[in-house]
């Protein structure tokens, strides 16, 4: 299996996650190869955000293993985890820019914290990344002065400032107009080609998913329905995948016993 491990950057096996008594991830197996753009797709409540939180090490797995760039997250020490985090970049759904810092300081933050570079170099590198995401000249604005699309692009610049091997992108098109969201898709493709990153995108936007993805994983109620190329997913025979692709409302089957139990049971 040596050949596959060299090529696989994310390897998840039997991952379980619970919120209280709700089972969010039901033994998920998941792997991503070097250099691909993987889109994790699924409706609201499918567990895709929870899976992402496990991948970036914000949640520790209760059961199962998460292996990133050869580091087992469940058993990683502080030093190993820190090393891993220098090699991954995350762009959060709401941007999560530090509100008290301007755009340039936000982008420079990882450089200042992890490197010994002098201020001039830090400034130039930060501005370079801002140019890549088409935010050149906006470095002195505060996050509150930016539009939704600009916040996402600034967050992306911060995520790539350390030239990570792995980039995670949570809902790139949520809350953006179609043009800006299309621009962001182009940007993601450009990044992969120019900087040779492996990119994992979590989204529920079909159009954007099909445009950028090499491979797609469809998640539903904590199960992986299908993983494959765009064509394979489009032609999947799975009914729930087709529901998602054709925006059909789900036929929710109501189990009478479960239903009564939910209505009558006391809170704990």
């Amino acid at each position: 299996m040596a050949a596959t491990t060299a090529d696989t950057v994310i390897e998840v096996q039997g991952l379980e996650a619970w919120y209280g008594r709700r089972r969010i991830l039901k033994g998920v197996d998941f792997s991503v190869r070097r250099g691909e753009i993987r889109v994790i797709m699924g409706g609201s409540g499918s567990g895709k955000s929870t899976l992402l939180r496990h991948l970036i090490g914000l949640n520790r797995p209760l059961a199962g293993t998460v292996n990133m760039l050869g580091i087992d997250l469940a058993h990683a020490g502080t030093e190993e985890l820190l090393q891993l985090r220098r090699q991954i970049g995350v762009s959060f759904q709401g941007g999560a820019l530090i509100t008290s810092l301007d755009v340039e300081d936000n982008v420079s933050l990882p450089l200042r914290e992890h490197t010994q570079l002098d201020e001039n170099t830090v400034r130039i590198m930060a501005r370079l990344k801002l140019e890549i995401v088409n935010l050149g000249g906006f470095q002195n604005l505060m996050p509150s002065q930016l539009s939704g699309g600009m916040i996402k692009r600034a967050a992306l610049a911060r995520a790539i400032v350390m030239d990570p091997k792995l980039l995670f992108f949570d809902e790139p098109s949520a809350g953006l107009d179609p043009v800006v969201s299309a621009e962001l898709d182009e940007l993601i493709l450009k990044l992969r080609d120019a900087l040779r990153m492996t990119i994992v995108v979590v989204t529920h936007e079909l159009e954007s998913a099909f445009r950028i993805a090499d491979t797609i994983t469809v998640l539903d109620h904590g199960d992986i329905l299908v993983t494959g190329t765009v064509a394979e997913v489009r032609n999947s025979q799975n009914e729930r995948v087709q529901d998602l692709l054709h925006r059909r409302p789900r036929d929710l089957v109501v189990d009478p016993d479960e239903y009564l139990k939910r209505l009558t049971e006391e809170d704990d």
Partner: peptide, 22 residues
Amino acid sequence: GSMNVSQEVDALAVMGVDPVRY
């Protein structure tokens, strides 16, 4: 608290900047 709500604390953590230190 507001940094926590807007995921800024998470962002610090994944950048490898310990929120307690920062």
